[in-house]
């Protein structure tokens, strides 16, 4: 069996003469919370629609749970749940009736799962209230309930925090974390709220104009975003010794190109500079680096960087 829940290989989607997605290679392992980051129109929703089979690729392939045969993909969708764009609801039905339709559709035995899922998303007490009278947040939660109804192994959430109030966002984040921790649920989540994704995802895919610019783990992202002093001196080995013996810090890295990344003394640039110079080192470069996720994303897609 494949170690990947989802693997795409050179996945492309073309509308008329324009590529909505081009050669996308994404890999999601079991237990990952994969944050899909991109601007409006970057191709996030197209990608998610391709994965769940609402639309078809122009070229490339999708492997889900180790299957890449299109006929078998339909079958493995039973192991998935999804909300794409807006939650799709029968507005003239109650929350319970909405879930009942999906229970029947998916052939889930027993009605207990309906109550259990409604309780999980906090909609158990909505009674006879029709979905059309729900607030946006309640509709979002009902959409989530539909996605979670069959106890899926892999869930796809497209902008799930839309319409949720701050408390709702926190609750959703905690719920996803809980399901991921307790049931090993694999999650693919797209959002504009990068700070929200940063707190949740274990892996990120950054998409821009239909192309996957970067795929990195949260650890790698943290590394990239961590504030540090970037120092280039004529003798990196001696530089490292000076930092250790004079400044009493080991919180630094010497990169292969000789650049030293110093994670301490961020606010004490003058002291660092003086110490290095006083010890006979020539400073070729010294700057403060590190981004927030937003500015890192902006830099990557070539947008405006906000300090």
């Amino acid at each position: 069996m494949s170690e990947y829940i989802l693997k795409t290989n050179k996945l492309s989607k073309k509308y008329k003469h324009e590529f909505a997605l081009e050669n996308i290679n994404v890999t999601i392992k079991q237990g990952d919370i994969y944050g899909f980051i991109g601007q409006n129109g970057a191709g996030k929703s197209t990608m998610l629609r391709l994965i769940i089979g609402l639309t078809f690729p122009t070229s490339g392939s999708i492997e889900l749970f180790g299957n890449d045969n299109r006929n078998e993909l339909t079958g493995v969708q039973k192991r998935m749940g999804a909300i794409i764009e807006n939650p799709a609801l029968f507005l003239n039905m109650t929350a319970r009736e909405n879930l009942e339709v999906h229970r029947l559709q998916k052939g889930i035995p027993g009605k207990e799962c309906v109550d259990k899922t409604l309780e999980l998303v906090g909609l158990k007490d909505t009674g006879k209230k029709k979905a059309k009278n729900f607030s946006l947040g309640m509709k979002q939660r009902l959409g989530l309930a539909i996605a979670l109804l069959s106890d899926p192994e892999f869930i796809i959430l497209d902008e799930p925090t839309n319409g949720l109030d701050p408390m709702g966002i926190v609750e959703l984040r905690e719920l996803i974390k809980k399901l991921n921790r307790e049931k090993g649920l694999t999650v693919l989540i797209s959002s504009h709220i990068l700070s929200e994704l940063h707190q949740l995802a274990t892996k990120f895919g950054i998409i821009h104009k239909g192309k996957l610019l970067e795929e990195l783990t949260s650890k790698e992202l943290d590394e990239k975003c961590r504030q540090h002093l970037r120092i280039k001196v004529d003798d990196p080995t001696r530089g490292a010794i000076v930092l250790e013996q004079i400044l009493f810090t080991t919180d630094f890295e010497v990169m292969q190109d000789g650049v030293i990344k110093l994670y301490s003394h961020i606010d004490d640039v003058r002291k660092v500079s003086q110490t290095l110079t006083n010890n006979g080192l020539v400073i070729e470069h010294l700057s403060q680096n590190g981004d927030s996720l937003e500015s890192y994303f902006s830099k990557l897609v070539g947008g405006v960087e906000h300090d």
Binding site: L54, G75, R79, E85, A88, L91, H102, I146
Partner: peptide, 12 residues
């Protein structure tokens, strides 16, 4: 409502 999306991805 767009509920057809849910049906199309129901594994049927």
């Amino acid at each position: 409502s767009g509920v057809i999306k849910n049906q199309m991805m129901s594994g049927n």
